[in-house]
Design a protein around this nucleic acid. Structure first.
Lengths: 204, 204
DNA sequence: GAACATTTGTACTGTTTCGCATAAAATAAC
DNA sequence: GTTATTTTATGCGAAACAGTACAAATGTTC
């Protein structure tokens, strides 16, 4: 199923790489301010090629969001490796997030979803759906680890895994916003440390 | 200084009211997707009147952000009334935030700054400056209350007021994002309650 | 009432926007 | 080699866009 030779002229570009370039454009400018000329220039693709491969601008944007969501989930599950202590897990989640957020030419880009999908969410239902689903998936993944923490005694029996997870996510959301607002790496790392402390309490 | 009659034809509109209407447009659509036609229609002002009163689109947007920031600070200081217990203060901060965030025709609008200024912050330095300053001002105001809490014994002497304030803000940032992502009022209120619990610990 | 100053409404300009039509190019099937 | 099929490249076209010129309208100052 991988090398099924399709008839007709073959593509002269790697769709996945093009999606990555398009993602950078959306990440810096947002959906509305990203023009097809910007996207065409960044991907080295003509407009018809973009349309042929991804559909219109909104489809392309949704594709980049989905890819970003998937990548983020991979980073998250790796950070939450259950063979490590809970405290380390949460610290790794924040470290992984900051590695993604603090990366930009002019200013840090923060999170693609929180930073750019939030604006469109009010008017574009499909964007709102992806954003909501992404946030929920993140919450759920962290919640699983919290439940495990209660079972293992890393957290008190009275702890509420669902709410702890949502608050752990909240710190990450704040890091995303603050990164884009121009906060320094030191500031963000300090918030992450304090967040771990507050969420994990005096867990071992 | 209030009624200095200027010569020439007087304005036929209230600039403050117009700014409020423009704010609604930016709140729903963001800066980039808000057209001058949208703004002109919402304010019932011709384009030349908009330009004459506020400058270009970016100037107008920055004006609405400043106004929103000021309004937000007023709500915040009122919520932080030091005659109330710390726990009530933080709960009131979140309640005040949600009252603002959960208000939209199609979907909740969240926070104007976090929801719409974040996108532009990367490329527009002036927007980034307002956003960063607003977040900092909020942090500082809450931090003052936290310091008072330590003095009064509402918080343990070992508490770090600066970091507690930033984490209290973090919960609010998350509420802003989640509101725009479509989360229900019940969900958001539950997060706010858990946030108060976590931040204020077992404070009286 | 005459001269001046500012706002308002209409209409315009030049640019940018998105999406597509059309034809040439490149490969598979026959 | 011929035909069928898909992707490229050029460039079109209609709409939306931000900002402004200009003249009419509406005040103040003298």
């Amino acid at each position: 199923m991988k090398d099924e030779k399709k008839r007709g002229r073959p593509r002269a570009f790697d769709a996945k790489a093009a999606l990555g370039k398009a993602r950078d454009v959306f990440w810096d400018r947002g959906f509305a301010a990203a023009s097809l000329d910007n996207l065409s220039a960044a991907t080295n693709l003509n407009r018809p090629s973009l349309y042929g491969a991804f559909g219109d601008k909104e489809d392309l944007y949704l594709d980049t969001l989905e890819g970003y969501r998937q990548d983020g989930m991979d980073v998250l599950t790796e950070a939450l490796d259950p063979s490590l202590p809970l405290r380390d897990n949460i610290a790794r989640v924040y470290a992984g997030a900051l590695a993604i957020y603090l990366h930009g030419e002019t200013a840090a880009r923060g999170c693609l979803l929180i930073g750019t999908a939030s604006v469109e969410a009010v008017q574009h239902e499909r964007v709102r759906e992806v954003l909501g689903r992404s946030l929920n998936d993140f919450d759920d993944e962290i919640e699983k680890r919290m439940r495990l923490g209660v079972e293992r005694g890393e957290l008190p029996q009275s702890a509420d895994p669902e709410m702890l997870a949502r608050l752990a996510s909240a710190v990450m959301h704040s890091l995303a916003v603050r990164a884009r607002a121009g906060d320094s790496r030191e500031t963000l790392e300090a918030i992450a440390r304090s967040g771990v402390e507050l969420i994990c309490g005096s867990a071992p």
